[in-house]
Computed example of a mutant assay.
Amino acid sequence: MSELRLILFDVDGTLVDSQGDIVASMTRAFEGEGLEAPTREATLSIVGLSLEVAIPQLAPGLDASAYDRMVAGYKAAYMELRAAQGSQKSSPLYPYARDVLDQLATIDHYLLGVATGKSRRGLDALLAGHGMTKMFLTQQVSDHHPSKPHPAMVLAALSETGVAPENAVMIGDTSFDMQMARAAGVRALGVGWGYHKPEDLEPHADAVIHDFRDLPGAIDRIWESER
């Protein structure tokens, strides 16, 4: 009988392309404080971090109350945009993502999970909108953990599933995902279609892929390399 394997996914930039709403929400958060909005590139560079960590990086030197208002403003704007369009338009799945997820879910010894900078409410809404509420056995969100790249999310997922670190892989589009995987002692697989440049992932990743259809083979190769 095969050992259980845990496949953890980041969400924004890995499973779904939510950059339009992310940039628009961050712009609204800054404008609410009378600040010039960051560039698209700057905003996408912090995707994956918890908002409480990301916003001070984009606007250093403000007081705590300003950051609290900006976090609240971002969340309100994001919810408004999602409600207006629905998750499938607001945060569409990347090409072939659903097909590959369905394929992986049929493999008995594979367990699927997520480790995301989204809130519990945000993740619940996204998964419901895509009909994937029951797809991920373990779901780690920003409400309960330090921001990436701290390994807490991955360690909690390992604990919940009983999977050993050597039998787990973290899949993500940012250097924060890769660094989190390394800190937790699991394998790291980068995807080149997200918000960080592939060359920023490569120093920390076991491999980087550029097409969702290549994911099952890349996972097999990562674990075969341990034999």
Results as ranks from 00 to 15, higher is better:
residue 28 R to L: 15
residue 144 H to S: 11
residue 72 A to M: 10
residue 215 L to G: 05
residue 69 R to M: 15
residue 24 A to N: 15
residue 63 D to V: 10
residue 67 Y to C: 13
residue 180 M to G: 00
residue 20 G to A: 13
residue 64 A to V: 08
residue 19 Q to V: 11
residue 104 L to E: 04
residue 35 L to V: 14
residue 75 K to C: 08
residue 103 Q to E: 06
residue 205 A to R: 01
residue 107 I to R: 06
residue 118 K to F: 06
residue 160 E to V: 08
residue 116 T to G: 12
residue 89 K to H: 11
residue 45 S to Y: 12
residue 11 V to Y: 02
residue 188 A to L: 07
residue 153 M to P: 12
residue 199 E to M: 05
residue 211 D to E: 13
residue 149 P to Y: 02
residue 196 H to S: 07
residue 56 P to H: 12
residue 60 P to N: 13
residue 103 Q to L: 05
residue 155 L to K: 14
residue 94 Y to A: 04
residue 216 P to W: 05
residue 214 D to E: 15
residue 69 R to Q: 14
residue 206 D to Y: 08
residue 104 L to A: 01
residue 13 G to Y: 05
residue 75 K to L: 14
residue 22 I to M: 15
residue 198 P to E: 01
residue 174 T to H: 08
residue 94 Y to P: 02
residue 66 A to L: 08
residue 122 G to K: 00
residue 218 A to N: 12
residue 202 E to S: 13
residue 213 R to W: 13
residue 53 V to M: 12
residue 111 L to A: 10
residue 198 P to S: 03
residue 50 S to Y: 01
residue 67 Y to W: 15
residue 48 G to P: 08
residue 107 I to F: 03
residue 84 A to K: 07
residue 140 Q to Y: 03
residue 60 P to F: 10
residue 70 M to G: 09
residue 125 A to Y: 01
residue 86 G to D: 04
residue 31 E to D: 11
residue 59 A to F: 09
residue 79 M to R: 10
residue 218 A to D: 07
residue 16 V to G: 00
residue 49 L to E: 12
residue 149 P to D: 00
residue 134 K to T: 12
residue 219 I to R: 14
residue 74 Y to S: 11
residue 134 K to Y: 06
residue 180 M to Q: 07
residue 27 T to L: 11
residue 40 R to T: 09
residue 215 L to P: 00
residue 48 G to V: 06
residue 1 M to Y: 04
residue 73 G to I: 09
residue 213 R to N: 13
residue 120 R to C: 09
residue 73 G to Y: 10
residue 207 A to S: 14
residue 177 D to I: 07
residue 214 D to L: 02
residue 149 P to M: 04
residue 13 G to R: 02
residue 67 Y to T: 11
residue 54 A to F: 05
residue 131 G to R: 08
residue 189 L to W: 02
residue 205 A to L: 08
residue 46 I to S: 08
residue 192 G to W: 03
residue 105 A to M: 02
residue 33 E to G: 02
residue 101 L to Y: 04
residue 63 D to R: 10
residue 151 P to G: 04
residue 79 M to T: 03
residue 77 A to F: 14
residue 202 E to V: 06
residue 205 A to N: 01
residue 63 D to I: 11
residue 112 L to N: 04
residue 133 T to N: 06
residue 50 S to M: 00
